[in-house]
Design a protein around this nucleic acid. Structure first.
Lengths: 138, 138
DNA sequence: TACTATAGGAGAATAGTTCTCTAATCAGAA
DNA sequence: TTCTGATTAGAGAACTATTCTCCTATAGTA
């Protein structure tokens, strides 16, 4: 994704387009395995050495609020970010910090079907996410 | 669950039985909606005013390692704990900090079935957890 | 180009969690 | 029961990810 495409995305959401925002979005796409804020800062500083930690966090917050990126929960106390917009699940490696996206339309359909039949009393489901935990094999 | 039962649980895992460990486990069971470490400390201090923050965190860590409690990921930066041992999922309220357990054998069976047919390449699944996000209705 | 709201930068502040080091206590052996 | 060694608990400092404050810079618009 290039700077122009990112600008349009920001513009569509009514957000101001700034070099920092473009760089941050770009870095999440580029570091495409769920970077932490720290990973993002390190990456951006190569081309943009003066960016502030506060800016990165503030921009990430804005992106999350506007649905441009996802905040991914982890077992440890660091948040990780994801630029995928498509409905997807996450594969967590129990041996490492690795997180992968898992996209599977058939699975989504099965889940939707199941919960449209079996409702949870007094609860309206907005989203269902799977955390698939396991180990990579050779 | 009384102190005797908790002692046996600890003993079975080869863990030393201490009053602090019993109190901490008891409090997670008692505060049965996924307390934070802070909730636990506050609760325990009623009967055990000198317990240290470090002790609570250390004991929780030991419990998690030994499979006696679950660490529950949240959107915010506080961990929450759960004494349920049974395989279960979590319902997250998007309006509040509430988290509820969701136990559903039929759903587990569907998931197990699906993933026994459709394997993820080079990955051995150990556990699958659903995060069901939505709102409570009246 | 000038104006105004919004965004960015720097560093301090905060909050949850972990670490360090010492004293206490548990569990098994005598 | 008492002793003993290993483990655990306590206190508070340290650490780390994130947020806040406050001021300056910049984007978007006329």
């Amino acid at each position: 994704m290039n700077a122009g495409e990112i600008s349009s995305k920001l513009y569509e959401k009514g957000l101001k387009v700034t070099p920092q925002r473009i760089a941050i979005f770009e870095s999440i796409v580029e570091l495409n395995n769920h970077p932490t804020a720290e990973n993002i800062i390190e990456y951006i500083r190569k081309n943009h050495p003066n960016i502030s930690v506060a800016t990165v966090y503030k921009v990430l917050e804005v992106f999350v609020e506007n649905g441009l990126v996802d905040k991914v929960k982890t077992e440890s106390d660091t948040m990780r970010y994801d630029a995928i917009l498509e409905r997807h699940h996450h594969i967590y490696c129990s041996d490492s910090e690795k997180i992968e996206d898992f996209i599977d339309a058939e699975l989504n359909e099965i889940l939707d079907n199941y919960f449209s039949k079996k409702k949870i009393p007094h609860f309206q489901i907005e989203d269902i996410k799977l955390q698939i935990i396991g180990k990579y094999t050779k």
